Simulated scan of single mutants.
Amino acid sequence: MNAERLMQVILAPIITEKATFIAEKSRQVVFRVLPNATKIEIKEAVELLFKVQVDSVTVLNHKGKTKRFGRFVGRRRNEKKAYVSLHEGHEINFAEVV
């Protein structure tokens, strides 16, 4: 894979209460990724950026909600989330990563 493309695949980590619970329980980390990213690209990008071994990647396409703002109807953005399972003994600590 192209290293430049891999650097752009991961947009941001998702740090919510649910994501934190999953990280503690089953060694998974949640990322927001590009809409056209594949599982193989996500796996290689995480291994390249964070120097960890990845067991598996599960992908979720999350459609944005339609919301109402007074008399105007708007829509939240669509997201693609990646649940990345890490190999035994590997961990990503976002407080240490610069």
Rank of each mutant, 00 (worst) to 15 (best):
T66V: 14
A3M: 03
K18S: 04
V59G: 05
V29T: 12
A19L: 03
M7Y: 05
L49T: 06
V9N: 00
K51S: 14
Q8I: 00
L34F: 02
E79G: 00
V84I: 11
V30D: 00
T20P: 00
F72K: 15
K51L: 05
E17C: 10
L86E: 02
I42E: 02
A82P: 04
L60K: 11
E88T: 11
K81M: 12
K18V: 01
K65W: 01
M1N: 04
L6G: 00
A19C: 03
K25E: 12
A19K: 02
E96Y: 02
H87Y: 15
I40F: 14
L49C: 03
Q53M: 06
T16M: 10
I92K: 08
I10S: 00
F50K: 07
L48Q: 10
S85P: 02
E47C: 10
N93A: 09
R32A: 14
V98F: 04
T16P: 00
N61I: 10
I42Y: 05
A37S: 13
V84C: 03
L34I: 03
M1L: 09
F21C: 03
K63I: 13
I15V: 15
T66M: 11
E91D: 13
E44V: 03
V30P: 00
E24K: 15
F69N: 15
I92Q: 06
V29F: 04
E41D: 13
A19R: 03
V30L: 11
V52F: 07
E47M: 15
R71A: 04
R76G: 09
F50L: 07
K63V: 14
K39I: 12
R71S: 09
E79R: 01
N36L: 13
K39A: 14
H62R: 10
F72T: 13
K43D: 07
H62F: 07
I42G: 01
N93S: 13
A19E: 02
N78F: 10
M7G: 07
F50W: 08
E88Q: 10
S85V: 07
K81W: 13
R32P: 00
H62K: 10
V33N: 01
A95D: 15
S56A: 14
K18E: 07
P13I: 14
V98D: 06
I22C: 01
T16S: 15
M1K: 05
Q8M: 02
K51W: 01
